[in-house]
Design a binder for these strands. Structure first.
Lengths: 206, 206, 206, 206
DNA sequence: TATGAATGAGGATTCATTCAT
DNA sequence: GATGAATGAATCCTCATTCAT
């Protein structure tokens, strides 16, 4: 790629994160050693410690970057009225975020265990619970609560489960989103979704 | 229950598996050391090596035990006609298996990475793909394929996602199963499910 | 000394302590690496960890062995009447203990800092304070308290300070003891020491 | 005291020495890292290297500063007649020096080991030997030599041993000095100390 | 005067594994 | 069936030091 050592000046921190992300996602946090990361970057292990205080710090820094879009979506959701439309929009936005951040989510799933001793409120699990709490109505019938929850999780699992199905990625995303929105609608019997807002096209992820 | 140290004679292998299962599920395979397992059993590390050739052997032995019910279900499914009813029964049976084996599945999820270098066809992922292939129809519309897939995965994710919701476990299971069966039915427009077979009660998990 | 590897079976723990003692006394705890200890014993570093949980554990184990005679002396002193004679006997016994345990005390002095974060009551300093509290009378005039304290410390410092003076070690010890007993007597004006008990000969330190 | 960051310009070298002194005295030389020193000064480690060539250089520079008063006292002593009065004056001056430089001496004691590979004649030990050689008479009886030695060392040990005794510091100093002078006098039987020169008051330590 | 970025050597510690008994 | 003692390789991490800027 023509990236000579000189051209790399100042971006070492970023490069560490990139490589770490890649390896953590591939092999998991525990199995990835700092030696491996350092070697791939052609720096010494000690150099990593100039940029991050501990190995876990690298993990956390990655996680925080990855969690930000989720946090923003949660913030947005909390400020909206608790209507079906809001929930549908949440799901739609989540679908888009997921599409452009699939490796990140893969990374997060691989490394849930390694992150499970974070401060409460800081884990992926906590964020997912927060998310589902925006979607489900605690007074609804249990099956309807399940439908709401599942609108969210279906997007995760289906995307992964469909990786070996041959089809256009955007088509797959729309198919999954359709099912998610369907579940959501079924979870709200008697309510009417906003007309004219379907699955729609994803914006460019530039 | 009267299991004195003497009474344990001969079941050390089983006890190792139990403890390993517990710890692997809790902290993951990589983070769990043989020292930890040995200490909890009050034996020496060397004793473990009398029963298992390597650490990975413990993992594999656990995995094989856990995978057997899944394999049996797959075998059964393969011998049935590819009808909606078969699929519904698959989902029903899966739901029951899941209920009595939740820790096992938790264990499997935690340790996917550690098992990913197994022979092809031996991983959990492979079995899940096989399972979804029994459920989905490759010629159906994409959203309907998603619905079929999701019938399966919803059972996983929802059960975990509902852990912090207060309700009777059996009620939760039925609610989840209802949604799964619903998805399946919706994935087969025009077909009619066998009447008189609803969510039903789970058999005793003796 | 003809100590073949075979002859060493079972005494590795002791040998670690011996070598550690030697090196800690010579270079101090911090400057001594486990590699050094292991190499001198011709075992691996990991072998050390079979016998001691941490490096500090080695230090503590040494310290406890060394502190025992001191503790015994303290115990004895606490059970005696608080008379001048008792104090004189304490000093006499201390002098003897010191003579046969000089390397140990050298070791302790070298490594005070490394041990300073022990539990209260566990440090050398605490024991010395306890010792001086047996010797001095808090109601006496300050200079007399100083004399009592000094009876103890003089034995330490003088022995070290006299190392480069040529004389028979036992003569040196007696000379120091004489001064210590003198200080003690002067600290108790008006009291009469037990007659017939002078500096005397040290018992064999076999 | 109005020492703004700006006011500190140019005294960085001094500030490094101050912080190093503090930390070396507290934790010892080996346990104190340059990172620690730099952080406490809010500069980079590299900045330390502008002022000192190595870590050991800091130690040596401190030691030389601290040793100067001792060297001056030694020089003075060497030029005086070898009388009891000279010795008494040496002890008196030493007592005063000690009082205003207690942390320094604490520092030196902590870090004897670290300095033990200095050129001969450069160590604290060497100076203490020189000092005792001014005090003791090699032809005197051994116990009298011990008394002379101890006159010096008592001042060290007693001051530290009395730290946990409640009393006015100046009173303590005088008490210790009295004992030291006493020891000296007793070491010179038949000689008469200069009359009218007792323990006296310490000069201001400006 | 200082810093930012890095290095090389070495630190303590842990791990899975082995083997004679 | 199990232990006691040990190993070799790897781990994360810290340190004093350097040097271009």
């Amino acid at each position: 790629m023509g990236s000579t050592p000189q051209a790399r000046r100042g971006d070492t921190r970023q490069r560490i994160q990139d490589v770490a992300m890649e390896l953590f996602a591939e092999q998991g946090y525990e199995k990835t050693s700092l030696r491996e990361i350092a070697e791939r970057l052609d720096v010494t292990k000690a150099a990593l410690y100039y940029h991050f205080k501990t190995k876990e710090d690298i993990l956390i820094s990655l996680f925080q970057d990855l969690a930000r879009p989720l946090d923003e979506l949660l913030d947005w959701g909390r400020q909206q009225p608790r209507t079906l439309e809001t929930k549908q929009e949440l799901v739609r936005r989540y679908s888009v975020a997921l599409q452009s951040a699939l490796p990140l989510f893969r990374f997060m799933q691989q490394n849930q265990a390694a992150m499970s001793h974070l401060r409460p409120g800081e884990t992926l699990k906590d964020r997912m619970i927060a998310m589902t709490n925006l979607l489900r109505d605690p007074d609804a019938a249990l099956p309807d609560q399940v439908r709401s929850l599942s609108a969210l999780f279906v997007m995760h699992t289906a995307i992964f489960a469909m990786q070996h199905i041959e089809a256009d990625p955007e088509d797959k995303r729309k198919a999954v989103l359709e099912v998610a929105l369907d579940l959501l609608a079924q979870a709200h019997p008697g309510e009417q979704a906003h007309p004219g807002e379907g699955v729609g096209d994803a914006p460019d992820a530039s």
